[in-house]
């Protein structure tokens, strides 16, 4: 099972990873975007961490929704609505739950991904965060089918995200500011796919051994 504390530990770990990688994410965004991805995500997740301590009851759904609404209110850019929608929708799928089975986590993740796809309108191969999240979902589903432990399943999920992230390098962007570059966007790793990989790698790190 994935507990309420596990979920909060995951969000905190990701917030720390965003801070640690703030300059790197911004550098990736300088190459093909507008040089603010790390800065914006760090501002948002700093606000999120400030909210986590004040949460009233161990409700995973409510906690994830708070993460999402805080991101929408503080990040701006495209990342604010996209990551905000991801967490809000994910939270909406597990309202009132204090612990999640791997299957429930997978379903919640898919609901969050659905929110990202709906408002971002990106398709696989557009060189966006979706290119990390979809292979991650597929890897998680395959791991569940294999009867993997939480730790193994999330590690495979993070590995899927990593492969998807690396696979964005040769792609030509078709969404977001990078799309304005056309062919010149090829050869650069997508910043959104990179932060999405960090999101799932953070989960794999804090849930190791489960």
């Amino acid at each position: 099972m994935i507990s309420y504390d596990d979920i909060l530990a995951w969000v905190r770990r990701f917030a720390a990873a965003v801070t640690a990688n703030k300059a790197y994410l911004t550098e990736l965004d300088s190459a093909i975007g507008d040089a603010d991805h790390g800065i914006n995500m760090d501002r948002g997740f700093t606000a999120v961490v400030g909210k986590l301590d004040g949460l009233a009851s161990p409700d995973i759904g409510a906690a994830l929704k708070t993460v999402g609404t805080t991101l929408v209110s503080t990040v701006g850019g495209a990342s604010g609505p996209l990551y905000g929608m991801f967490f809000m929708q994910m939270g909406g799928a597990v309202t009132g739950k204090e612990a999640l089975t791997l299957e429930e986590f997978a379903t919640a993740f898919e609901t969050g991904l659905g929110g990202v796809l709906r408002i971002g309108k990106a398709e696989p191969g557009d060189k966006t965060m979706v290119d990390a999240l979809i292979p991650a979902r597929d890897a998680l589903r395959a791991a569940i089918a294999d009867g993997a432990s939480v730790s193994d399943a999330i590690t495979r999920m993070a590995d899927g995200a990593e492969q998807g992230m690396l696979a964005t390098v040769p792609l030509v962007a078709r969404k977001g500011r990078a799309s304005y570059l056309g062919e010149r966007s090829a050869g650069h790793q997508d910043p959104g796919a990179t932060s999405s990989h960090l999101l799932l790698r953070s989960a794999a790190e804090v849930w190791a051994g489960r």
Partner: peptide
């Protein structure tokens, strides 16, 4: 006005 070069938030 949002942050520098960053869209403002819905609020």
């Amino acid at each position: 006005p949002g942050a520098v070069f960053t869209s403002p938030v819905p609020d």
